[in-house]
Design a protein around this nucleic acid. Sequence first.
DNA 1: CGGTCGTTTGAAGTGGTTCAAGCCTTGTGG
DNA 2: CCACAAGGCTTGAACCACTTCAAACGACCG
Lengths: 238, 238
Amino acid sequence: MPQSQSTAKKPQNNQRDRAILGLTRSCGLQDEGARALRSVASPTERYPAATLITPAGSTPRPKLILSGWACELRTIEDGRRQIFSFALAGDAVVSRPASAAHSCVLMALTAVECIDVERTLSGAQDPGRQDLARAIEQSLQVARERRYTQAVRLGRRSAVERVGDLLLELYDRLQMVDLVEAGGFPIALTQEHLADALGLSTVHVNRRLRTLRTRKLATLRFGRVSGFDREGLAALAR
Amino acid sequence: MPQSQSTAKKPQNNQRDRAILGLTRSCGLQDEGARALRSVASPTERYPAATLITPAGSTPRPKLILSGWACELRTIEDGRRQIFSFALAGDAVVSRPASAAHSCVLMALTAVECIDVERTLSGAQDPGRQDLARAIEQSLQVARERRYTQAVRLGRRSAVERVGDLLLELYDRLQMVDLVEAGGFPIALTQEHLADALGLSTVHVNRRLRTLRTRKLATLRFGRVSGFDREGLAALAR
DNA sequence: CGGTCGTTTGAAGTGGTTCAAGCCTTGTGG
DNA sequence: CCACAAGGCTTGAACCACTTCAAACGACCG
């Protein structure tokens, strides 16, 4: 599946290259689609950490993440929060107006760079853009399917399994965009973020992270996961 | 396998009326769309209780439920199950080939009648069918949004809240298709189904159901919920 | 009428929460 | 360059929500 190709031109390190890499590997983006994305004059939107990524108008707008970490989340009246998913470079996400009580909100966890998909795709119907549109649609679909896995995590897994399983997902996804190296990867999440995603208390996330560390499955320190044992973790949350 | 019977008589219209009601109230189906659905000669597919609703080919196929209860679920290796959602009359659902390990399976909980959406919509592009297609797409979208609520339930609510909140959802949805009467409604779910949907043990579902009963919020007996206090339950899981 | 499946209840155990305090790291301003 | 504040991480102790196991009971079905 990882069909690593030299679609990325190294010369100047374009922000968009990582997203192109992700769409290529996970969603079968073709060269022509990559070229379309690279050449389009769509402005990069920037959101500071801890701000909402809201659409311009009042309709849901798909965005393509170029860099940074974002998440879909909902907050309930008493302040409890649930994070539904994390969005990384190369992921397409739908951002909705914050008002929609029955939906969710997209929030930047770190500084985030993204581009507006529809703005990028509007206009000419050349094959490059069509391919890009297809890949982005597929990316959204993949994200939708991941939500099933997330529900299983929340409903039917123990705390260690939840933590391990989520790290596994992040590992695999970051691998796709060349953000894994030397058996480790950067993780821009606090233990509170993990807790909100996993339906646990922060304290307990901390303790189960410790379990993973002592079992030599993964070590999270200073915004980085190291000593990652993919096989071991996969066995944990089979 | 779908056991489709070609009863091309009037009774068929009756089956479809409930779905039409649901699509009209929840998804803005217009008269012309309703007429299109009623007149189309698509055979009704029937699935017995506890069987998988699988697509004919190997691609995901949308179905429109006419009667009965179905659910989306995934089973993990050790036998634990997670139910993601319930599908009732008037709901559109996507059924996928059972092999897709990363997705989920659609299972009939009672005998289920449904029709294949694409078969129904193929052919002429009259405005009636277009309206129908739009309403069905909207129904799928509504179902997708409900998954966020389900994730909050699993991750951030206590057991009583989970049970109450789910009953509330079912009440509101059944109300839309005129299946609520006298403050109660039929519920074709065992406590084990509820447990699998809510990430709890059957025993605990039983106990929290008891809590709801003693607090006079809702009583589940013999496949029926009665004494339903909508306000009280809404306050419970605000 | 007996068998099966679903529900109900009790008692004991465990996994996760809560509260509270101390520590470490990072960033900020003097 | 140091001092200090703020936010995140870590740990302990007590508590409670939910699970597990086991047994009995009730409803439905052939």
